[in-house]
């Protein structure tokens, strides 16, 4: 197959378009649903092309779109239910800011600390290296379901229940980032390292001047993974927070669900759209590190 790919980018494009369309379908469906009125969602059987009805309606009466279609979003953004006291952002805007803060703090913490540790595991020789690394690996293999209660009890002992650090810190020092970056640092050719060593480069210099710049794509990948993961995290913030001012978007969005009524799908989908769009932007910003060919430029510089 790859030899045929060579014959022309047209085939590649065609293949990609077809695949991408199937990948985008649910997102498209989410977007369409988020613009519908509550009664419309189930009004016909789900069709292969779910937007046709909506399009017809918009063409029929363009003003309807601005009234009903944007209703879900304005309803979301106007939502507030926090207690009166306090002066900071409340309601939906607070959920958004909390989510941004959690995601940034966890991502930065993970990338910074685990790149340091990964460098030690990949490039330094010290007694106990293998053993400590296996301890890291081992923690990846235990499901969070059984570590949740011990973690919670630890945080209670520290007096940290319902604090920002309780949400952030346990997600920072996971083995995932360390393991991943170690694997990438391993691919750096030894010759480059030796050359730098001969030039009198210290281990810190090796880390700073060689390992990090040569692993920009890996750092970008870890950042994306960590950011997306912490942006969408639900269970842990739920467990450690007891007031709404600590909620993130995934928690906040469940507040729109009623117990007696069926879920308001359009509103929930509008919420999912609000959740997803920033992630797409982050991804688009991060993915350019996968194309620039940073590696060669950095070494020659």
């Amino acid at each position: 197959m790859p030899s045929r790919i060579k014959s022309g980018p047209l085939v590649v494009y065609g293949l990609l378009v077809l695949l991408a369309a199937s990948m985008l379908f649910p997102f498209y469906w989410m977007a369409i649903t988020s613009l519908k009125g509550k009664a419309d969602v189930f009004s016909t059987e789900p069709k292969l092309i779910p937007g046709r009805q909506l399009a017809e309606r918009v063409v029929d009466d363009p003003r309807w779109f601005f009234h009903s279609g944007t209703d879900n979003y304005s309803q979301l953004l106007a939502w507030q239910r926090l207690v009166e006291s306090g002066s900071g952002p409340r309601g939906f805007s607070r959920f958004v800011l909390n989510t941004v803060f959690f995601a940034l703090a966890i991502t930065l913490g993970q990338v910074i600390t685990s790149s340091l540790a990964a460098f030690a595991f990949a490039r330094l020789r010290f007694p106990g290296r293998k053993q400590i690394f296996f301890a890291y690996l081992a923690t990846l293999m235990i499901p969070a379901t059984v570590t949740m209660i011990p973690s919670y009890i630890l945080l209670r002992e520290l007096g940290w229940v319902n604090t920002y650090q309780a949400v952030i810190l346990p997600s920072v020092f996971t083995a995932y980032g360390t393991f991943m970056l170690r694997q990438f640092f391993l691919t750096i050719p030894r010759e480059i390292e030796d050359a730098a060593r001969i030039d009198g480069c210290s281990p810190l210099g090796l880390y700073w001047r060689i390992a990090l710049p040569l692993s920009t794509p890996a750092l970008a990948a870890l950042s994306i993974v960590a950011f997306v993961g912490s942006w969408r995290t639900f269970m842990w913030p739920l467990i450690v927070s007891s007031t709404e001012d600590l909620f993130n978007l995934p928690l906040g969005l469940t507040l729109f669900r009623g117990m007696y009524t069926d879920p308001d799908w359009p509103l929930l989908m509008a919420g999912s759209m609000v959740m997803t769009l920033p992630l797409i932007l982050v991804f688009i910003a991060g993915q350019r590190y996968f194309v620039e060919g940073i590696r060669l430029g950095a070494v020659k510089g």
Binding site: T113, A117, L124, T139, P150, L169, V172, F173, T178
Partner: peptide, 19 residues
């Protein structure tokens, strides 16, 4: 290199696993 991560790792990741 290790300590910034290792300290947090011991407390927040390894301890619950051992427990």
């Amino acid at each position: 290199f290790l300590l910034p991560n290792l300290l947090g790792f011991l407390a927040f990741t390894l301890f619950p696993v051992v427990a």
